[in-house]
Design a protein around this nucleic acid. Structure first.
Lengths: 339, 339
DNA sequence: ATGGGCTTCGAAATCGTTTTCGATACGATC
DNA sequence: GATCGTATCGAAAACGATTTCGAAGCCCAT
């Protein structure tokens, strides 16, 4: 089953490859009749251009690369959804790679994407990423790069994120305004910036409202901020601080773990302990009681990051230097039964 | 920032491009000394081959395409995880497209991937796909194709799936063996084969164990087999068939919806009504009570489908015709509190 | 008859690699 | 000295498209 090329069309019509190419691209310097004839036989022979040749010649692939820690995560799968949606709309394809939270994989994958000549790269950094030569390599090759969610402020490129600190501040302030005073925090790992930011927001909200910060009320989720972290920390919390009246958790999954423990042990939510999540994962409206949480616009983050990237790619093509944007997407408190 | 090519290395050393290329690929007909010199300057100039040129020349892209209905779904995101993992291991990149359950998008995306000259395609069909010319086009171009999960039996290509009917049969048989007699079924949409298969398994298990099938106990999930389907159907079920003692649901999410309704209305699980799910979504071990379900090997499905595809690609390269496999992955009943 | 303007076409270079097929040189053999 | 084998290299074609630039043909004006 031979694939037809420009040459086949040219031979069929007894004209040159150049004319065929120009006819198909509607160049002004080709006769109407020949244009039509070319179009007809192109359709007849079921021609479609060999993208590899086009890419080599035009030096662009209409493809972007995405590197994220994992696809198996509700947040990231929604981001991917937004990325693919926006990219497809503009005629770009998307190659996805997972760093699995490993720095060496991240570096390797950057090289793969550079070799593959993707037009641009979208990244959310792994928790382990503490050096950035690989990112600088991308920039030095003049390949547009946009970071989202897990970003690194020092890298001169566009970034899309939420204001984790502010969101946490608002959540905890809400708890305080509802009269909660002994507010615990189940915090994330030490490394990723976002978990520190949420922690900072928690502390600042307490201080701003005259509640002194109590380190013994903060519990670490060292199990990849998993469901079990919430369950186990809830257990410890009740043993060690029975007078606690509420918890602000780093993420919904942790909150749901806590809820499970409370439900099993006949601790009433929100009467005994209120629970505040983070992310607005769709399960948060399903669990009993439904979970009050912070809405994190995952899909929108994918769309916006891709918009910015594709824009920079287009500017890059015309050699227009693009200034880098830092977009902070708004979060929103979602009020449900758990508070 | 110029990217170095073979020509640059050749110029630097005063030798030909051909020799440089051969030196880098360790051809036997190039002197050891020149080989070393080439290697050294290649490293010095930070050379990495332009994949576009390589692809054009060798006619393969080391890239596979994946078309699935959606990425925002726990099952599919785990499949993707398996696909990317296996592909990366063998040095292939993965382009992901979403059909969003639309046939016209599926067709369009097939064309995109063909134009992109991917080496092979992995697909799970949309529920709307009722004609298959686009799949035949892939095969007629001699591009390896592997279908998984939502497959079409009539297409002559490899397939990876589970035995939905058998899994459903086993689940319902288990319920019967535990003494349940009034077994309801929350079934999926009419179109995808897998939901019909599960329905068939349900019916057959009943009949084989001397329970006459009662159509009034079967409820349709017409809301995309969503959480709400389970909730609403549970409500209707209790009103219309208060004597029901158990439910077999098309998928965990529907089961969890039902569980929520029962919890809210003080209907005890499993004492009043037992609930059996399908998929072993990780939430099924989190909800209260934990959900008895059928384990569906999503990650493995991605890995196996990719293995088969890459194998066919390799054979294809050597012009060895490959016979198509149909792999049926084993499922497993997971026993928890809800039954 | 000459020149200019316009339309239409195609030769050829180019993108960066891979690979075939000679070409050359040198030493060994008879 | 003629022949052969071997080691080493490079010219050139090829992959399939894009694009520049010049050529050819024709008409019209001078």
């Amino acid at each position: 089953m031979k694939v037809t090329t420009l040459k086949d069309i040219a031979n069929e019509l007894g004209i040159s490859v150049a004319t065929v190419s120009k006819a198909l691209k509607d160049y002004p310097d080709v006769n109407k009749d020949t244009k039509e004839k070319v179009l007809r036989t192109a359709r007849k022979l079921n021609y479609s251009p060999n993208q590899l040749a086009v890419n080599l010649r035009t030096k662009q692939t209409k493809t972007i690369g995405v590197i994220i820690p994992t696809t198996v995560h509700h947040f990231f799968s929604k981001v991917i959804d937004g990325i693919i949606e926006e990219a497809e709309k503009k005629g770009y394809l998307v190659i996805i790679l997972q760093s699995s939270e490993k720095l060496f994989l991240e570096k390797l994958q950057i090289n793969l994407l550079i070799d593959k000549r993707v037009d641009g790269i979208l990244m959310s950094l792994s928790n382990k990423t503490n050096e950035f030569v690989h990112l600088k390599k991308v920039l030095s090759r003049n390949i547009p790069l946009v970071l989202f969610d897990k970003i690194e402020p020092s890298i001169p490129c566009s970034k899309v994120r939420i204001d984790d600190k502010k969101a946490a501040y608002e959540a905890v302030s809400y708890l305080i305004s509802k009269g909660y005073k002994k507010i615990s925090h189940f915090r994330g790992d030490l490394n990723p910036k976002i978990s520190n930011d949420r922690f900072e927001g928690y502390k600042e909200a307490l201080e701003d409202h005259g509640i002194t910060y109590d380190a013994s009320l903060v519990y670490l989720c060292n199990n990849n901020t998993d469901f079990e972290d919430g369950y186990n920390n809830a257990k410890k919390l009740i043993q060690e601080n029975p007078e606690v009246d509420s918890i602000f958790t780093i993420t919904d999954l942790v909150a749901i773990g806590a809820i499970k423990y409370f439900n099993e042990n006949n601790i009433k939510i929100p009467n005994d302990v209120a629970v505040f999540g983070f992310s607005n994962w769709f399960m948060s409206s399903v669990v009993s009681p439904t979970l009050t949480t912070v809405h994190q616009p995952a899909h929108q983050m994918g769309v916006v990051a891709t918009e910015i990237l594709l824009n920079e790619i287009e500017l890059n093509k015309e050699n227009i230097p693009s200034l880098h944007k830092e977009v902070i997407l708004p979060t929103k408190l979602i009020f449900r039964e758990s508070c």
